[in-house]
Amino acid sequence: MKIGIRAHDIHIFDDPEGLAQALKKHGFNFVQFAPRVSLAGLTHQGAKLNFGLANQVKQAFDRNGVTIAVLGCYCNIIDPDLAKRQQVLNQFKKYLTVAHSFGANLVATETGSVDPTFHKTVNNFTPIKIEETIAVIKELVQIAEKVGCLVGIEPGVNHPIYSLVVTQQLLAAIPSPNLQIVLDPGSLVMHAEDDPVALLKQGIELFGDRIYAYHLKDFFYHDNHIEITPIGEGVADIEAMLRVINEQQPGAYAIADELSARDIEQSLTRLQAMAQRIN
């Protein structure tokens, strides 16, 4: 089994060749790539992409056997400031247009918040806000259909698309194959008793044919929210989740998420050991 990583968890920036070589050295052959971070200086924090730079990244990654599985454009697509919302939606549409020059098939985001500071609020969960979010995603999917790309939505507990049930609602409202899901069971944990392995299994059962990639992170639950830990030090059974993915969708993109720079080598060693036991 192969496991990917967010490219910016390897702290090499504005240097596609150096980053690609480092990813190859660590044994990765696919990544999630966020220009906002990995190319911060060259793209004005991801706001300005061009086809030539995207192709330079693709060529560097190709030389080192690395594929961009997910192009990240995580932004607040339901920002209450409509001018800011339109700005990020235009940016996301640009990412959809340029994705193939990066060698990517999908551009991913979470669904944002009615609170631009992202403090927890139940106002994200109202039927009106969910419908508004679905309408915004439908607009993005229509662009994706025109340019031959995929929109990836990652559900999360502090967003309007916040649960497996609401994700089903989204997929039913937009049956287009150009809409796919990036499923992170840890991001759907709302209560201490929630089991990310069970959430993963349920997600695959409900809409497995619309899951493009998986995010995996370890954590413990504290003060009504999760706190990320190095792999193997939290309550999430990462190996069990990897086994479920491998059994249900062998070869699927499984991407380690939110690895801290301080503990990354330890986390990667543990992840690679898990993958070897599964193989």
Score class of each variant (00 low, 15 high):
residue 52 G to N: 12
residue 150 L to G: 02
residue 25 K to W: 08
residue 52 G to V: 02
residue 45 Q to F: 03
residue 277 R to H: 06
residue 86 Q to M: 08
residue 65 G to N: 02
residue 199 L to E: 00
residue 137 I to E: 06
residue 25 K to G: 12
residue 181 I to S: 08
residue 268 L to M: 14
residue 80 P to H: 10
residue 162 Y to N: 13
residue 246 N to A: 12
residue 84 K to P: 03
residue 213 A to P: 03
residue 175 P to K: 09
residue 115 D to G: 10
residue 192 A to Q: 14
residue 262 R to F: 09
residue 11 H to Y: 15
residue 179 L to M: 01
residue 184 D to F: 04
residue 163 S to K: 11
residue 119 H to A: 10
residue 66 V to W: 02
residue 265 E to Q: 12
residue 68 I to L: 04
residue 176 S to G: 09
residue 112 G to V: 00
residue 9 D to P: 02
residue 73 C to A: 11
residue 10 I to G: 00
residue 162 Y to D: 09
residue 188 L to W: 04
residue 232 G to I: 15
residue 135 A to K: 07
residue 147 V to H: 00
residue 154 E to H: 06
residue 108 A to C: 14
residue 218 D to V: 06
residue 176 S to C: 03
residue 15 D to M: 08
residue 169 Q to I: 03
residue 48 K to H: 04
residue 110 E to M: 07
residue 44 H to W: 01
residue 179 L to W: 03
residue 258 E to I: 03
residue 153 I to L: 05
residue 88 V to C: 10
residue 6 R to K: 07
residue 273 A to Q: 06
residue 195 D to K: 05
residue 160 P to N: 13
residue 79 D to K: 05
residue 214 Y to R: 10
residue 196 P to T: 12
residue 228 I to H: 05
residue 23 L to C: 13
residue 173 A to K: 15
residue 153 I to A: 02
residue 101 S to E: 14
residue 231 I to V: 14
residue 270 R to W: 00
residue 42 L to A: 08
residue 94 K to W: 01
residue 193 E to F: 02
residue 221 Y to A: 11
residue 38 S to K: 06
residue 91 Q to S: 14
residue 5 I to R: 09
residue 194 D to E: 10
residue 257 D to G: 03
residue 81 D to Y: 05
residue 83 A to C: 10
residue 58 K to L: 07
residue 274 M to F: 15
residue 203 G to V: 08
residue 45 Q to G: 04
residue 95 Y to W: 12
residue 214 Y to S: 10
residue 73 C to F: 01
residue 254 A to H: 04
residue 188 L to N: 05
residue 222 H to Q: 12
residue 95 Y to C: 07
residue 5 I to D: 08
residue 182 V to I: 15
residue 68 I to H: 00
residue 253 Y to T: 03
residue 6 R to Y: 09
residue 77 I to N: 07
residue 67 T to F: 00
residue 274 M to G: 06
residue 216 L to S: 02
residue 7 A to C: 01
residue 91 Q to F: 02
residue 224 N to L: 11
residue 247 E to C: 06
residue 195 D to V: 00
residue 158 N to P: 03
residue 65 G to T: 12
residue 14 D to Q: 04
residue 87 Q to N: 13
residue 136 V to H: 14
residue 164 L to G: 09
residue 63 R to K: 12
residue 49 L to H: 06
residue 232 G to Y: 05
residue 7 A to F: 05
residue 203 G to D: 05
residue 210 R to F: 06
residue 222 H to T: 14
residue 106 L to D: 03
residue 134 I to T: 03
residue 222 H to G: 10
residue 128 I to S: 13
residue 6 R to W: 04
residue 139 E to Y: 07
residue 157 V to L: 02
residue 116 P to C: 00
residue 143 I to L: 07
residue 138 K to A: 12
residue 191 H to M: 04
residue 156 G to K: 05
residue 191 H to Y: 10
residue 57 V to H: 02
residue 25 K to P: 02
residue 193 E to R: 12
residue 89 L to K: 11
residue 83 A to I: 14
residue 241 M to L: 10
residue 49 L to Y: 01
residue 151 V to G: 06
residue 31 V to G: 01
residue 39 L to T: 01
residue 177 P to M: 01
residue 39 L to D: 09
residue 114 V to E: 04
residue 62 D to L: 06
residue 58 K to R: 15
residue 268 L to I: 15
residue 43 T to P: 01
residue 195 D to P: 03
residue 76 N to I: 09
residue 187 S to V: 00
residue 70 V to N: 07
residue 73 C to M: 06
residue 152 G to W: 09
residue 210 R to T: 07
residue 85 R to L: 09
residue 86 Q to G: 10
residue 154 E to K: 06
residue 16 P to A: 14
residue 52 G to L: 08
residue 129 K to R: 04
